[in-house]
Design a protein around this nucleic acid. Structure first.
Lengths: 169, 169
DNA sequence: TTGAATCCCGACTCGAGCGGTCGTATACTT
DNA sequence: AAGTATACGACCGCTCGAGTCGGGATTCAA
């Protein structure tokens, strides 16, 4: 196939392909509001991704009420929510489950070393930060990407070394 | 609660254990400035983590000049930089390599579908956000964690749904 | 000088989970 | 009834993270 030549490129906060596909599919559906329902096969072909896999992903999105499924001929999936109301966070959450930065985590010290857990507290806060950013990105932002500056503005960050100003709006 | 028993709770933006261990070790060293050098074995025992694995991690941190290694008896590792100057980002980078949210990424369109890549642009920006947050967290913040509010203030976020204000002191 | 402690580093194993497939059941349209 | 599509569980190979092993180099102490 393609890619898979560089195993060392990503790490840590990589989206799973499933989440990727899910976001792509939602974007695609949002871009075609005139079509009553888009089949998993159609979407998969548009992006050259395996259709059966995409189908499973869309099924999960259907289960949590992000999309609606229509069986039968000319069936497929349609958005159930306004693209402006679908956050990347909920999509990823629906597909991959809860996301935590820390490895051991059950909010009662099961990584019984009090010491080791202290380092994770600030990281848990980083985790919240990331979640918040993802909650502020919506499918509509993906669709408008290009001319719109919404996303760009959303996550603008002043990161002059040592400086600590995060801002967005 | 919902974290339950499942070991597979985390995903996506999980720190690798190596990065975790690296941060923990640096914190530990920073907490013991009076000791000229701490061996990988000592640190590993303090946290109950495999010492050989930790050794490899510290070696990578030594290679990029974050710590200094001392061979021989009573040898070990000591910080080479001020804890206030060591960011979580560079530690993670040194251990795990570059981090990208997107799966296919080589800055020249190798995921040749122009369509599929458009969705990744905004995500790349999320990636920058996360990097910036990690760059603003330092080993010293981990050490002071508890009484100090530095980290807490650093990543405070107003996330009232729909609202888009990130701020940090 | 010898030995112990320690760093150094590549090679290796092992297992979980991700990405993907298959097959079958079910639902809807015409 | 036929054809198209979703629904869903079972399965599977393979990558990669986690951890181990072993041999070698360096330093210190007795």
């Amino acid at each position: 196939m393609w890619a898979e030549e560089r195993p060392e490129c990503a790490s840590m906060l990589r989206l799973t392909k499933k989440a990727d596909y899910g976001l792509m599919a939602l974007k695609y559906i949002a871009e075609h509001p005139e079509v009553p329902a888009l089949s998993a096969k159609d979407i998969a072909e548009a992006y050259h991704i395996p259709s059966q896999l995409l189908a499973k992903i869309l099924q999960r999105l259907a289960k949590v009420g992000i999309v609606k499924s229509h069986a039968g001929m000319n069936g497929g999936y349609s958005l159930l929510k306004d693209p402006h109301k679908i956050s990347a966070f909920e999509v990823i959450f629906a597909i991959d489950g809860p996301l935590f930065i820390t490895s051991c985590f059950t909010q009662e010290g099961n990584c019984d070393l009090t010491n080791s857990c202290t380092i994770k507290e600030p990281l848990a806060r980083v985790n919240e930060t990331i979640s918040s950013v993802l909650k502020n990105i919506h499918i509509s932002d993906l669709v408008e990407e290009g001319r719109s500056r919404s996303v760009r503005e959303l996550v603008t960050i002043r990161t002059s070394s040592g400086d600590k100003i995060l801002q967005a709006t």
